[in-house]
Amino acid sequence: MSESSAQVRDAARLWDEHRHAPFPDSLRGAEGGTDLWLLDLYTAGCVVTWLDNGGTLDAENSRILQSCLEDLQQVIPEINEPAAAQYYQRLHQLALLVATNLAGTK
């Protein structure tokens, strides 16, 4: 199995875990000027697109994913609720898996 295939498999497993986790109700709204619900939505959209396309994203989704990664890195340290922090750390890990795979294919 290639490294790329392993990353897609790992991301699919992590995505399955993430999509079954409830969204933290305490975070419906903005944190540090970032709407966390929209951040989740945009990041998840890029992850699903990447998985559906066998590990590729177009330029626009790559840009969106990079923006989401930057936002996640800023907001995660501000989340004080353990379950909510875990939710966004998993989302960040997914985004990193996708971004790392994209960087390796450019």
Rank of each mutant, 00 (worst) to 15 (best):
M1I: 05
M1N: 11
M1K: 05
M1A: 13
S2R: 04
E3G: 11
E3L: 09
S4N: 08
S5I: 04
S5V: 04
S5R: 08
Q7K: 07
Q7W: 12
V8C: 10
V8I: 14
V8M: 04
R9M: 08
R9C: 11
D10K: 05
A11K: 02
A11L: 10
A12Y: 14
R13C: 10
W15M: 05
W15N: 06
D16K: 10
E17H: 09
E17F: 09
H18W: 13
R19T: 10
R19M: 07
H20Q: 14
A21W: 15
A21Y: 14
P22K: 03
F23I: 01
F23S: 01
P24G: 03
S26C: 11
L27C: 04
L27W: 00
L27R: 00
R28D: 02
R28A: 00
R28K: 01
G29D: 04
A30Y: 13
E31M: 12
G32V: 00
G32E: 11
T34M: 07
D35I: 03
D35Q: 05
L36P: 00
L36T: 01
W37Y: 13
W37M: 04
W37H: 10
L38M: 15
L39Y: 12
L39M: 02
L39G: 00
Y42G: 07
T43M: 05
T43A: 15
A44W: 02
G45L: 02
C46S: 15
V47L: 05
V47Y: 09
V48A: 13
T49R: 11
T49D: 15
W50L: 06
L51V: 08
L51R: 01
D52I: 01
D52L: 08
N53R: 08
G54T: 02
G54M: 06
G54S: 03
G54H: 05
G55N: 03
G55D: 00
L57Q: 07
L57A: 08
L57C: 07
D58T: 00
E60S: 09
E60V: 11
E60D: 13
N61S: 08
S62E: 15
R63E: 15
R63S: 14
R63F: 05
L65A: 10
L65P: 03
L65Q: 03
L65F: 02
S67F: 06
C68W: 05
D71M: 03
D71N: 11
L72M: 03
Q74Y: 12
V75N: 00
P77E: 10
P77A: 08
P77V: 08
P77M: 09
E78C: 11
N80T: 13
E81G: 03
E81R: 04
P82L: 03
P82E: 15
P82V: 06
A84W: 01
A85Q: 14
A85V: 06
A85L: 11
Q86Y: 09
Q86V: 08
Y87Q: 08
Y88G: 13
Q89L: 08
Q89F: 09
Q89V: 05
R90C: 04
R90L: 04
R90H: 13
L91S: 00
H92G: 04
H92C: 10
Q93K: 09
L94N: 02
A95F: 12
A95E: 04
L97S: 07
V98N: 02
A99V: 01
A99P: 03
T100Q: 14
N101T: 07
N101A: 12
N101E: 15
A103N: 09
A103V: 03
G104N: 06
